[in-house]
Design a protein around this nucleic acid. Structure first.
Lengths: 134, 134
DNA sequence: GTATTATCTGTGTATCTATTCAGATGAAAG
DNA sequence: CTTTCATCTGAATAGATACACAGATAATAC
């Protein structure tokens, strides 16, 4: 059993030091990782997820239509859209009194599709149980 | 301007009723949406994201190695792994006293890759500013 | 059997966050 | 200019959650 210097300098036991060094070497930088997890966190709220799937289907919707489509208040929708827009997940276009929102790029659409497929193809993680398959 | 019955029965104004109906018709079911956002929420914590990228690089790591690779305590890592395992994002394999964890399937790997690419190709959403491109 | 190591789990606390309400801003109509 | 409508923003509150500590469980060594 080897030992590796962790980032804070304290020595901890390691079963596979090479793999640990490999992981730390290729790990995303702090700022990059923060942004990645920030995007996932935005997608991790049911209200926002509902908005995004509505935009995925309709292509473009204004705030009041999004509120109707997701059965939320317009204020809640507006607050959610503010966060999504601030991180570039959605973008808004003003047309008269309405602001129409759409998904920013293909990456977001892919994330929504892949995760939905992941869920439907892996019905294990329902409410609690999620052991190995077979 | 038309009007649509929202899910709660109250009538709200709608700019594009057809699009709203399209979105509501193709919207994920409540349980499916809950599971999708639950997966995203799991990926939305920096500590867990770090663990997942470590597993993405190393393929398989035990708890103490993950703690070393991510500069966290073993307790924190274990708590994080419990949530990830409960939702089927990672899976564990016991070998003697160690438990080795790995990413469950290709979907998770794809999510991590796509989002990292999304971040690096879209340097807009740094700390605050994220207006339209161009 | 006891000792030791690795991982897991219960509990408490401090922090964050989603939602709501009230009011502000921007745009069009009269 | 005043009114009306759509959207936005600030503040307060209730609920969720990540981390740390202490102790429990599992597996090997002696």
């Amino acid at each position: 059993m080897g030992s590796v210097e962790s980032l804070e300098g304290c020595v901890v036991t390691a079963v596979h030091p090479e793999k640990v060094r490999l992981a730390t070497a290729h790990a995303p930088a702090a700022e990059e990782l923060a942004r990645v997890s920030a995007v996932f966190k935005l997608l991790g709220d049911p209200t926002r997820t509902r908005l995004l799937y509505a935009l995925l289907e309709a292509g473009e919707l204004c705030v009041c239509d999004l509120a109707a489509a997701t059965a939320s208040t317009e204020t809640t929708v507006s607050q959610a859209l503010r966060l999504l827009r601030a991180s570039g997940v959605v973008s808004g276009r003003r047309e008269g009194r309405n602001v129409f929102y759409r998904l920013s790029d293909a990456h977001v659409r892919l994330l929504l599709d892949v995760t939905r497929e992941h869920i439907t193809h892996d019905p294990r993680q329902a409410a609690g149980g999620a052991e190995e398959e077979a």
